[in-house]
């Protein structure tokens, strides 16, 4: 593409966007509507993953060490736990600390535990967090194999449910987003088809004067990209303000048990993704629309 050709295409594309004002507006609104629904699912998916991450980060397996194990073996067990691939963090909760915590919990009744300091019946615990909950079962099995480990405590049902729910929501979101993208391309191509139809005479003349297919396509594709880009900006602003409003509302209501992803963390990724989606939707939509009229 020569530079003067490029200038011509861009100039034509902008001229078309503004001269077919209402049609362009309809196309932009279509992109906005598609991207808003797409964005809702994206935000839902990101937040579910974020929620799962938090639970995963907080989730611990308790490794109870046999009371007959000595100091050296206790330290060696800690090292063996750390060497298991999926293990993220290992914190020792020694039995004397546990006893102290128990006394504190009992408050006024703490005296019932007097005298146990010398012959502590509690076991030393290792609190183990994992990198991925998907591998929890395998990790638990490996922990149980370690010599000197009396028992491990975990809630496999909770993990299983969590993994299933987050996986399902992620999968559903991906399929919904994909379906939306296809539907959007179809709607946008139909909307742009109307502008192409209005200019079929011009395309016909261009063909007879010797224009190549790409010379004819470029202004339409750029027009689609411009429409997609405007749609992306508008939907980003709407989603950004709405999400920020939601975060503010949650904060005002004092809801602390559910943490949402901060806007600053998803802003850049979603802007890029939206721009890409908008541009692709518009561009591909235009390509499909103009195809029919090039067969002369």
């Amino acid at each position: 593409m020569k530079i003067r050709g490029g200038r011509y295409f861009i100039k034509e594309a902008f001229r078309n966007v503004f001269s077919n004002g209402w049609m362009s507006m309809a196309s932009i609104l279509t992109v906005v509507a598609s991207l808003l629904v797409f964005g809702l699912f994206m935000i839902l998916s990101i937040n579910v993953s974020y929620f799962a991450e938090q639970i995963e980060a907080d989730y611990e397996i308790i490794v109870m060490v046999d009371e007959t194990v000595g100091e050296d073996r206790l330290a060696a067990i800690g090292e063996e736990i750390r060497n298991i691939p999926n293990v993220q963090e290992v914190v020792l909760n020694p039995n004397d600390q546990r006893l102290a915590d128990l006394k504190e919990d009992l408050g006024e009744d703490a005296s019932v535990l007097d005298g146990y300091e010398e012959d502590n019946p509690l076991r030393d615990w290792y609190m183990v967090t994992m990198e991925s909950l998907d591998l929890a079962e395998q990790t638990a099995a490996q922990l149980e194999q370690i010599s000197g480990v009396a028992k491990i405590a975990r809630n496999q049902d909770t993990i299983n449910t969590l993994v299933t729910v987050t996986d399902s929501i992620s999968n559903i979101s991906i399929w919904v987003m994909l379906a939306l993208a296809i539907v959007s391309v179809f709607i946008i191509s139909n909307t742009i088809k109307l502008t192409v139809f209005a200019r079929r005479k011009e395309i016909n003349i261009m063909k007879f004067v010797g224009a190549t297919d790409w010379f004819i396509r470029w202004p339409f594709v750029i027009e689609g990209v411009i429409i997609g880009f405007f749609g992306c900006i508008i939907s980003l602003l709407i989603l950004g303000f709405a999400y920020n409003g939601l975060l503010g509302m949650v904060e005002n209501l004092g809801i602390t048990f559910v943490k949402f992803v901060p806007l600053s963390r998803i802003w850049l990724t979603s802007s890029g993704l939206f721009a890409l989606m908008g541009i692709l939707l518009g561009g591909i939509g235009s390509l499909i629309s103009v195809r029919k009229y090039l067969k002369v």
Binding site: F208, V209, G210, A211, T212, D213, F215
Partner: peptide, 9 residues
């Protein structure tokens, strides 16, 4: 097909 425009020119 790609050569048709050049004929028409």
């Amino acid at each position: 097909r790609s050569q048709i425009p050049y004929l028409r020119r």
